[in-house]
């Protein structure tokens, strides 16, 4: 697999909830692609679409050059095996009446891989690698903690060894030590098998640690996309700047500086997003032009794209209030 291309405009839901409203980017083979953004900005929807669980209502998603939507049923089933998602809600993918080990080997069974004994072995092995003792194997989902269930979901997908894994908020429910173990495991598998990850998370310290590139979403659109370090250290979009400033830091109070940029107002509804720039109703740098003109999705630096009229390679436009206070 070389260059996996994903072009993704518009999914109009039943009453045209514009969950994803025109996105356009590619994920490269073997990379870790981080996605951060507002709750409800469409990250999960995007993740589901990326692995063909949701058909795009407009536009296309290409997996390694092929359009999965154009494949026949059996070819599609085989194809989908390589594109997996681990869900945000640990209950979503677990059958409450199946034991843990049965859930873990189920995908292998459906794909008809190996015999019963080898599937079982592989399942137990992966469970152990995500830090679950073999004794958890015979339990049922309701007998596990939230983080344990989440690890079962991770194990379930890892047994399949797909090419691409979309991880939707998969480590937030784990303590930092186990989180480290699981992320190290992901990194090992990537090195070993060239896996590609799309990592959706709210945890900026995690996403900046593991990603090669980071995309920032707001209300169904991409605001910024660039190399992880640049996006986190030198954000160019006012929304990214605000998002980064809100990250809670585990420091004692005398070492914390309040640098939080508070976003005024409510998140607009995706049914009727604001005209022009979607972030304008809450943007601290808003100008009259922002209401009339949709900002272009443009390269500001090599490999670093942003959707803001006024962002430059040096950074986001100045905060209006701060500018006012200064003058």
């Amino acid at each position: 697999m070389r260059d996996l291309r994903i072009l993704f405009p518009t999914r109009d839901g039943r009453d045209t909830v514009k969950a994803i409203d025109g996105m356009d980017f590619e994920v490269c083979a073997g990379e870790t692609f981080g996605i951060i953004g507002e709750s409800g900005s469409g990250k999960t929807t995007l993740g589901r679409a990326l692995v063909s669980l949701l058909p795009p209502s407009h536009g296309k998603i290409l997996h390694d050059g092929t359009d999965p939507a154009a494949l026949g049923i059996s070819a599609f089933r085989k194809h989908r095996r390589d594109y997996q998602i681990i869900f945000q809600d640990p209950n979503a993918a677990l059958n409450p009446r199946m034991t843990i080990i049965d859930s873990v080997v189920e995908p292998l069974e459906i794909m008809g891989e190996g015999d019963h004994a080898s599937r079982h072995r592989r399942g137990i092995e992966v469970l152990e690698r995500v830090g679950l003792a073999a004794e958890a194997a015979d339990r049922y989902p309701h007998q596990l903690s939230g983080g344990q269930k989440q690890r079962v979901n991770i194990a379930r997908v890892l047994t399949l060894r797909p090419k691409v894994i979309v991880c939707d908020e998969v480590v937030a429910a784990l303590d930092v030590s186990i989180r480290g173990d699981v992320l190290n495991l992901f990194a090992d598998l990537q090195r070993e098998f060239g896996l590609t990850y799309v990592f959706i998370t709210h945890d900026i310290s995690v996403v900046s640690h593991i990603s090669d590139r980071i995309a920032v979403t707001y209300l169904g659109k991409l605001m910024e996309l660039g190399p992880a370090e640049d996006v986190v250290e030198h954000p160019l979009h006012p929304y990214t700047r605000a998002l980064l400033s809100a990250e809670p830091v585990p420091l004692p109070s005398h070492l914390r500086v309040d640098r939080r940029i508070i976003l005024e107002g409510e998140i607009p509804s995706p049914v009727a997003p604001p005209s022009g720039c979607r972030f304008r109703t809450r943007c601290p740098s808003v100008q009259p032009r922002c209401a009339n003109e949709v900002p272009a999705w443009r390269d500001v630096k090599p490999g670093h794209r942003v959707a803001c009229h006024f962002a430059t390679a040096d950074g986001p436009p100045p905060d209006n209030q701060k500018a006012q206070r200064a003058s």
Partner: peptide, 23 residues
């Protein structure tokens, strides 16, 4: 202490994350 030392901010970017060995 082990928990606090496992915070990703304390490890090198893209490097191995610290965790508490064992189970």
């Amino acid at each position: 202490s082990g928990l606090l030392r496992s915070l990703p901010g304390l490890s090198k970017r893209r490097g191995v994350l610290t965790s508490i060995p064992g189970r």
